[in-house]
């Protein structure tokens, strides 16, 4: 680890490529924090075996009150994220090929992959999956929030749809967290500090890197 860090850092020490501006970073970490809270409190109500988490978070009565509000915060942040990123998340021709060769990505056979833009096809799919599950969670969650006012048929659908959407969203976030922390070294710096180094950009997002070079005449 240490040696690699020195290598990548030294070789390009002067050049920093901006990747996420402050707006994007705050938006992302608000999504992550609200998601984290909603996940813990949601899991507490998912199974009696996990109810100790409710006790840990202030008791069942308390989290029944807070979970939906934090869910609303999460949904709003996801709306902001969608406005910011939806355009750039459209799949292009390379991305479609990339998706059919996803196993090459997983086994580090990068030479077999078409080049990615600012986001690779996997990241784009995560984004769309999160938007879809957020919508499902928000609608079904809203129904479950006010059982006295909601028609029974909607409540019956939501009581199954809400945890189902949560399973989808939690598992995809687990993959995302693995990618962001362990699998792709230095990507965390992009989301915490906002910049990446040229070598990182050239390897992970070649088309994006080229566009940056072109516009900066490097």
């Amino acid at each position: 680890m240490a040696t690699r860090r020195t290598q990548v850092t030294n070789r390009n020490s002067e050049i920093r490529i901006p990747r996420f501006d402050a707006y994007e970073r705050v938006m992302h970490w608000m999504a992550a924090l609200s998601f984290f809270y909603a996940t813990l409190t949601g899991l507490a109500l998912w199974s009696p075996k996990l109810y100790w988490m409710a006790t840990m978070m202030g008791g069942g009565y308390h989290i029944r009150g807070s979970h939906p509000w934090v869910g609303v915060v999460f949904a709003v942040v996801m709306g902001v994220m969608a406005r910011r990123w939806a355009n750039g998340m459209r799949l292009d021709a390379d991305d479609r090929i990339w998706l059919t060769r996803m196993h090459k990505y997983a086994t580090h056979d990068h030479a077999a992959l078409p080049p990615s833009g600012r986001f690779n096809a996997g990241q784009k799919m995560l984004f769309w999956a999160q938007l879809a599950t957020t919508l499902a969670l928000f609608v079904s969650g809203f129904v479950l929030w006010f059982p006295e006012w909601m028609p029974r048929s909607l409540r019956l659908i939501s009581i199954a749809a809400h945890p189902l959407a949560a399973i989808g969203s939690i598992t995809s976030i687990l993959v995302h967290v693995y990618m962001g922390t362990a699998a792709v070294p230095h990507s965390m710096r992009a989301m915490l500090r906002g910049y990446v180094l040229p070598e990182w950009a050239r390897f992970h997002h070649p088309k994006w890197y080229k566009a940056w070079r072109a516009s900066h005449h490097v």
Binding site: H108, D109, T171, L174, P185, E199, P206
Partner: peptide
């Protein structure tokens, strides 16, 4: 849940992190 957690863990154990030095560049 556990499938993903263990899957990610063993992916790391088998393949390790992505490394520009070793893994070659995407075709372009």
């Amino acid at each position: 849940f556990w499938g993903t957690v263990f899957g990610a863990f063993f992916h790391f154990v088998i393949y390790g992190p992505q490394d520009p030095e070793k893994h070659g560049h995407p075709e372009d």
